[in-house]
Structure formats: structure tokens, C-alpha cells
Design a binder for these strands. Structure first.
Lengths: 188, 188, 188, 188
DNA sequence: TATGAATGAGGCTTCATTCAT
DNA sequence: AATGAATGAAGCCTCATTCAT
């Protein structure tokens, strides 16, 4: 007489607890016991839902990427004047900076600790999806998209290592001004 | 009279071996035993030179930062037309991209695994020294310096997670062209 | 449903094995591996029941003190002529001399090796409970109780370091005679 | 051209440093490195004077026992009325209580950690010398001497484990009174 | 399904001792 | 005689994983 549980829903609940834990303490520091405690289950139960620790990570990344890419394209306007799009991008970024930093941190850690090709491919593909979404939203060619993405990524990294270093408001103003000047020059 | 060993020089030799190991496998995966093997000594000897594993890391970061900041300012021209400086910066970056990625990777990992305030402060201070050196070399104000630094940092991060994503040649061409256009607009 | 184990009972079984080992080889010589072997479990299991080695010691002392103080008051008569009580005390002591020596030895070692205030307080409190029990049994004031206790303690110590030195039969005879003479003098 | 050093004198200097260290931290906690630092020499030098750590302990015990037994008989009167002798004994004890506790502590630790027959015999013989000296000073038969010695030993032990428990002044008063009463009864 | 007891390899660290200088 | 660098076995503890219930 198995207890009736929605297996998928339970997996997502466990993964949410994992994300909070990984974000706070890192994947390496999150022992199976700690995960179990954080999720309110026993260690044995974790192994009912995931074959091992690495699988938790893979499932978590998959879940996050699936959720995020849907949201990115939904939240960002895909046709509008460029300054509006730039503003939307910065808005999106500022609203999620904390989450995005956590995500980047986890991605970096995975790349380190789980050097299986599958894990690395998963991280790389997730990264590309973000990058492509950004290129689409900005409606720029891949080179500029990659550069803008580098800038965002570096901004997250810098904010991670030196929390006071990044002033997004000033940065947006600067970008907008460069754009305006380039437009003026092209038009003039 | 004691066995003749230059304590400082020996420390640096050990740290060099550590850097290679950390870069390859990560700090967490570098066990004291592996470090000892890589350095060609016994584990006990490591503890003759460093009180614990964390101290090795701290000493390594200090050594690298000391070496690097001296080199950055030495290698990059501090008075020259802007396009020349931009080119010099990209040259510097391209020549050391592998090393810089390793360094960033270690810095991120430290930030995760050694959440002692000292470790974090050390990473943050090292980051700032790089950023300041870059601002000086480009002779730009701190805001633009921070943005350029974010771009470099993100480029490294992206190259780390997705090795084929970054084409530094094309990126330099793009930056040079933006600069040229802005100059033309300002002059015109 | 979990594997059925009575956590408390299992702890006591482990502690009993520890006492035997500590008594034989000393606390310092009792490595976690040896303890595990003696108890018939793995080292990991020890850490399932106790957070660290010191905690094993603390739990052991607590268990012994709890058991003993109950037994002391139970085994010794609390109203009877003084010579009877003296005899009962010596009987109690002789029957348990080996155990008491082991206990004292462990207590001394703890005091040395675990100089945390908690450990020392625990030892001191255990000592006081024994002393108070003895004062009660002999029905003497605290000063005489402390002196009698010192005598017993020293007898144990001497027996520990020089096993042939102590003849409890002769000692009891001597004490009884002193008591008789003092009584006779007081009555006469 | 060996440096001119009085080998014996240097040994004693080293042993004095050892005693201080053993008394403070215990024999087990006194690593060869710590001993070397406390004595102001290198670890290598220790091995010039003693073949190994255990030999240090043996030499220390031997030195202390040699010094002490000379001193005990010298400081205590060997003919005088009994109350005077009792008083002298308590004086002696009170003046050296700290030292005697340290000594006892070390003796107990040796007995535990160095269960070689030689070490144990050495401790036992030292103990006997103290006991015999006490019997002589009190001019009592061996049984009473052993009991008095047990009392002193237990008093030291109790003072070690529970520093506030022992009031030597009150104890001496009590002993003197018991003696006086016994005398009165015998004389009357 | 769910629990948590049990495992044992492996991590960091300590330390008595040896030996080149 | 003296130094301190070097060794490596062994200590305590952690943790992913398995399995009886």
C-alpha cells in the first residue's frame, strides 16, 4: 500500500530545498545529511528520488534552466526601441541579481567538482541558452550578444567576489549614453 | 648547523606545485597527499612549511597577487594613445588567458570553500588590485574601469564554462571600432 | 520504518565496551578504531551515537556516576552502629576495589587530557557525589567525611601505583581499634 | 672541536624545562617540539641528550626522586614529640602541595602511558621511598605509615580534582585532637 | 515509501624520530 | 655539538551510500 505521492512534485520540492542549501553553503558543503534535514526527509528518502548526489545536481540544473529560459523570453520585450530593451535587460538583471549570482556560483562549482562530460555539457548548454536569449532580446548579432553577455557575467562575478563594486544604475546610464552617441554619429 | 634550505624559496616551490594542482583539479580535490606527491615531498613536510591547508591557499593567493600586480603595471604601457592601450590590454589578456582562468577559478572556489572573512577579504582585495591596475592602464575613470573589468572577468568566466564561445580577436576589433566612432563623433 | 534499534540501549552497550577498553589501556590509548573493534562496530557507527571522542568520555562518566551513586546509597546501611558502618564501607570498597581504581584512573586521565572546563567540572562533581555519599553513610560531619574520603582515594591511588602496598584487612582493624579506643575514652 | 658543555648539567637544565611543561600540560601533550621550544633548543639537540621521549621521562623521575628523598629527610625532624612531628609533616606538605600534586600527576600519567615494567617499577620505587620517609619521620609502624601515606596521597588527589575540597588547617587540627585523645586514654 | 543505523574509505593533521649539514 | 628539514604511520573525523525494517 504505497503512500500516494506525486513523484514529480516531490522531486521539485526536494530540489528547491537543495537550491537554497547549495546557494547558501555550496554544493560541496551540502552533505546528503544536511540536504535531508533541510528538506525535512531522511537520507534514505533522498535515494528514493535520486540515484546519487550528482544526480541531484543535474536534476537541479535542468529544472532551473527549464524554468529560467521560459521566463527570460517572457519577461523581456522582443520588439521595442533599443534603449527600452537595454533598460528592460538591466531591470531584469537587477531584479534577479541575487538569484543569478547563486546560479552562477553553483554552475562554477559543478564545473569544478563534477568534471563528467555530461555535467559540463549541461552547464555549457544552459549558459548558451541564456546567451541566446539575451542576443534575441537585444536584437544584436552574436558577437555583440556574446560581449554583452560577457559583461553581465563579469558583473555577476565581480558582485560575487566584491559586493560593493558594482553600481548597476551608473552602468546602465553609461551604456545608454554610449548607445546614444553612436546613434547620433550614425545619424548625423 | 642545519640542513641548508632557503625556507622562503622552498615555500615558493611548494606553492608553484600547488598552483598547478589547484588549476588542474581544483582546491577541494587537491588533498594534502596529492599536493605532497605533486610537490615531491611528504605530507609532514607540507606542515613544516604551512600550518594547515587553508594557509597554503592564503600564501598562494598572496604570492600570485604580489607577482601579478607587479607584472601588470610593468607589461602595460602607461602613456600611449588609447587604441594602443586597448590593444596592449587585449594582448596581455590573450597571452595569459589560460593562467587568468585558472586564477579566477581558484578565487571562486576559495570564496566558496573557505568562507572565513580573511579568505574572502584576501580574494576581494586581489580582485581590486587587478581592477585598479586596469583602470590605470586604460586611463579611464573608475566607473568605466569597473565596466571594462567586468567585461574581462565575464569573458574569462564564459571561456571557462564554454571554451569555444569567446573570440578575442573579433572582440578587440569591435571595441576598437566603437572607440573610433565615439572619437569621430566627439571630434566631428 | 527504520531499522529497529533502541538508541539509548545501544549507547549504553557502546559505553560498556569503552569502559573496559579505557580501564585496560587508558583513554588516550583507546583510539576510535580500537573502540570500534572492541564494541564490534565500525568507526562510523561510533559517530552515529556520539559526536566525538570527548563526548564518549562525558557520556561514560555520566553513566557511571549515575549508576554508582544510586548503588552506593543502596548498598550501604544508613542506620546502624558505627563499627558496622565502617565494616560495610570497607566491604563495599574491597568488593569494588578494581572497579574503583579503574574509575579513578580514568578520572585522572580525563582531567589531564580534556582540560575543557566541562570535563573538569564533570569529574569534580562526580567526585563530590562519592564524597557526600560516604559522609552520609558514615554519618560524620563534612570535615571527617572529606578526610575519610581522602584516605580511600589515597588507598586507591597507592594500590594503583604499588599493588602490594595496601592491606585492607589490617587497615580496617586499625580503624576499628582507634574508634573503639576513642569511644572508651569518651565513655570512661 | 666540540663546544665545551657540561653534559650532566645540560641534562638537568633540559629536565627542569620538561618538568614545568609536563606539570602544566601533561606528558602526553608535551611534544618533542614543544619540549625543545620550552628548553630553548632544537629537537635534534634533545636527541643528543636522551635517546627518546620515554628516556626523558625516566631521567626526570629519577632526578626528582633523588632530589626529593634527600630533602624530605633533611627538612623533617627525626626526633621530637609526636605533635611536633605531625605539625612538621603538615608544614612540609602545605609548603609543597603544588609541587607534590604535579609530581603525582606525572607519576599517574607515566603509569598509564608507559606501561613498560621499568617505568612502573621506577614509579613504584619512588612512591615507596616517600612512604618510608614518612614512616620514619612519624616514627610509626609500617601499617600506620601506609595509612598516613594513603591519606596524604588522597588529599593530593582530591586537591587535584577538586581544588576547593581540602582544608589542611582543619585536617591537622583534627589529627592532633585524635592523637591527644588517644594519648589521654592510654595515660589515664 | 520511508527511515536511520551502519559502513569504511579517505580527508586533514600530529608527532616521534632520523639525518644531512 | 647543534640544527631543523624531512618522514610516514597513525589519530580523529566526515560522508556518500547501502540496507534491514
Amino acid at each position: 500500500m504505497p503512500k500516494i505521492v506525486d513523484h514529480e512534485a516531490q522531486r521539485e520540492l526536494l530540489l528547491d530545498a537543495c537550491f537554497r542549501l547549495f546557494a547558501e553553503q555550496g554544493y560541496a558543503a551540502a552533505t546528503m545529511r544536511r540536504i535531508a534535514v533541510a528538506a525535512g526527509v531522511s537520507t534514505g528518502t533522498l535515494y528514493h528520488y535520486f540515484p546519487d548526489k550528482q544526480a541531484i545536481l543535474a536534476a537541479l540544473l535542468e529544472l532551473l534552466i527549464r524554468r529560467d529560459t521560459a521566463r527570460v523570453r517572457h519577461d523581456l520585450p522582443d520588439d521595442a526601441p533599443v534603449p527600452v530593451r537595454i533598460h528592460a535587460l538591466f531591470l531584469f538583471y537587477r531584479a534577479r541579481a541575487g538569484y543569478l549570482r547563486d546560479l552562477l556560483r553553483i554552475a562554477m562549482e559543478v564545473h569544478r567538482h563534477e568534471p563528467s562530460p555530461e555535467s559540463r555539457d549541461q552547464v555549457r548548454d544552459g549558459l548558451r541558452q541564456y546567451r541566446d536569449a539575451m542576443s534575441d532580446v537585444l536584437a544584436v548579432d552574436p558577437l555583440v550578444g556574446a560581449m554583452a553577455f560577457s559583461f553581465i557575467l563579469g558583473s555577476l562575478t565581480q558582485g560575487l567576489l566584491d559586493p560593493d563594486a558594482v553600481d548597476l544604475g551608473a552602468q546602465e546610464a553609461f551604456v545608454q549614453e554610449v548607445w546614444a552617441r553612436l546613434q547620433a554619429a550614425a545619424d548625423g
